[in-house]
Design a protein around this nucleic acid. Structure first.
Lengths: 144, 144
DNA sequence: TTGCATCCGGTACCTGAGTACAGGCTTACC
DNA sequence: GGTAAGCCTGTACTCAGGTACCGGATGCAA
């Protein structure tokens, strides 16, 4: 019930103090109350919100997307045109599945290169029998 | 046989001119000859090298790693203590497999959240039945 | 009231892989 | 020799998600 200070919240949520202020700037955390001297005073709920943020990040949501998720949660009574959590999770699932597919191709290609015993990339590029994809691979874009 | 100019190489390899100079700075491309006026003149081989670089990137190697691969290829007659292409590919394969495993956990978690019909993250975090991992997920680090 | 831990805002820096822009020079072709 | 396209160097910026540092102010306990 008594407010928490920056350092306490940071420790409880396992994040850096700077990160706390960063999230505030990004709009992920509401601006907390202040002491007379200007020090932030958080409520317990903030720790929960931070854990939610971290969980969503681990699921592959960007901070902008997490901001959207939290926004949705806050006033989902209002407009109906904003996507539900379910809808967003569904989209994210599709993204993750695509990345899994891409990564599977990469894995198979690496295995093929190992099986073929490739040992010099530049030489390989000049021999037609090499399994390495010098022209293209599935989805050239965003191979994080 | 006649030298290629920057724009020709860039077009042939499908990269940006700036990227060419960037790779030169990073040591991925050797410094080419110059005209009297200072314009770069590349040989055909350069296009092959660029394709090799792009292929390696698609397989998940960073530019630093690609530089290492090319270095290995260049003078593998010298010291034997540098890892072979095979060894590096093996290590990269392990990394890729780890990322696949992590991403699989993420996918399964998203599916579980969808199945459970989660609809408000902050509310979820306070109910013990929610499948979302508010404390941890496999490998908190580097979830690109 | 003194001392130390903590916190404040602001700014700059980090990684990785490029991209953009400014202002000036070169090359190629007619 | 004129003109347009292309190229040169150098610097700064992009994205994402933070982290680090600074000089100064506050909070709290002895």
């Amino acid at each position: 019930m008594t407010g928490l200070r920056t350092g306490e919240v940071a420790k409880a949520a396992g994040v850096n103090i700077q990160t706390l202020r960063y999230y505030e700037r990004r709009g992920l955390l509401a601006e907390p109350d202040r002491t007379l001297g200007g020090h932030r005073v958080y409520d317990q709920q903030t720790v929960t919100v931070l854990k939610v943020i971290k969980a969503a990040q681990r699921l592959g949501f960007t901070l902008d997307e997490v901001a959207g998720l939290l926004e949705t949660a806050r006033h989902r009574h209002g407009r109906k045109n904003s996507k539900s959590l379910q809808a967003r999770a569904q989209l994210k699932l599709a993204e993750v599945e695509q990345r899994l597919a891409d990564l599977t191709v990469v894995r198979d290609t690496l295995r093929a290169a190992l099986d073929a015993g490739c040992d010099d990339l530049v030489a390989c590029a000049n021999t037609p029998c090499c399994p390495l994809p010098f022209v293209e691979l599935a989805r050239p874009e965003e191979q994080a």
